[in-house]
């Protein structure tokens, strides 16, 4: 029976498994969020740069703004795995 085999070691392994899933979800979902955020900005930024080369710096700046979200996801994943 499943309940009988659930020793402390197994429970710990399972807990680690869930942590790993959580870490994966944190990075993955945050990445999706960043992607969605950068989608519109990136398109507009390329358009603006095509119109005026001088806009490149500002366009790059706007494009990387949502990147912080995925970094937060990555940090949470690291905390989950290594804390």
């Amino acid at each position: 029976m499943a309940i009988e085999t659930l020793t402390i070691e197994v429970a710990q392994e399972m807990a680690f498994g869930y942590t790993a899933i959580g870490a994966g979800l944190a990075v993955g979902l945050a990445g999706v969020g960043t992607g969605l955020g950068e989608m519109g900005i990136g398109a507009a930024a390329v358009g603006a740069t095509a119109e005026d080369r001088e806009m490149f710096g500002l366009a790059l700046l706007f494009t990387v703004l949502p990147e912080t979200i995925v970094i937060f996801g990555l940090v949470i994943a690291l905390l989950l795995l290594f804390l």
Binding site: T68, I71, L74, V75, L78
Partner: peptide
């Protein structure tokens, strides 16, 4: 807070 935490990328990107 978000700007300070944004510097976490120094550690996080390196670890990845």
């Amino acid at each position: 807070i978000s700007h300070v935490l944004s510097f976490c990328r120094l550690a996080a990107v390196g670890l990845s």
